[in-house]
Amino acid sequence: MAASHLLEVKNLTTEFRIGGSVIRAVDGISYYIDDGEIVGLVGESGCGKSASQLSVLQLIPMPPGNIVSGEAIFQGIDLLDFDPDGEQIRAVRGGKIGLIFQEPMTSLNPVLTIGRQIIETLVLHLHMDRQSARKRAVELIDLMGIPDAKQRIDNYPHQFSGGMRQRIMIAMAVSCNPNLLIADEPTTALDVTTQAQILEILRNMVKAFNTSLLIVTHNLGVVARYAQRIYVMYAGRIVESGTVKDIFDNPCHPYTLGLLKSVPRLDEPKGRKLVPIVGLPPNLGNMPGYCAFWPRCSKRSPACKKKPWPELRLISGQHYTACDYDFDKK
């Protein structure tokens, strides 16, 4: 067994009970992230990316959500053993693991000044007094590249643009020097130029604060540029994982292949057609017994339907895939 990871999630399964049916949003996924690493978690909307991240911190609404099984070992301790409202998990949230959400427009409290929202985290986790917390908050806002931090600290969220709000979210998330940052689609709601700025800030924060970053996204371009390793999720499961090189140069799951074919790249010959993945993600409340990607798969065979969804198998090094199709034989 290798040296212990910063966060190691094992066999995490999360279900939501909606109406009469049970939806398995996260289906026994395992992944890890080491100190100082940037890891990407990639997949389409609704594949369980966010649910898995919220589950780790027990932040999914319970009920209807329910973490059925699994472990989330963070610095040697299983976070899922803690009481969801208890002191121990609260010390980790915001203190040791910082979260950045998808929607900067709605993720900040509209009736509180941004200063107050940053300061309360500092007071809570670092036990700062109000004055030094305020000073630190100004520094953080300044660090995010927001001009006039001293004045802006007393502004309300509606006085900032989306990109600025996301910077404030990042300031809040890094304020207590966390060991891990989880960014859940941090740039999805922003325009393209702002996206790049936010990602640069995130990467700078990883260096400046010496934290790890788990970036959840559906944008392969984002992870290609910033991440060291990638996990690809489909219908609640991890279907392929490996280093960025593994995933981009040698995709071994038809879904990953489909994702790569559906996004443009700069380093490829002109004139390549973008190929969308046909069909829609499966209904998580009504999963087939076999591979859930089968209806949309370009490499499918009748044999796939006769066996259960394949487990992850090792290709080489750190590269795993959950498909039995052998790409080498063609």
Partner: peptide
């Protein structure tokens, strides 16, 4: 969302 943010801060 902002209540989820507040929870994610450990309040």
């Amino acid at each position: 969302d902002y209540i989820r943010t507040a929870r994610s801060k450990g309040l």
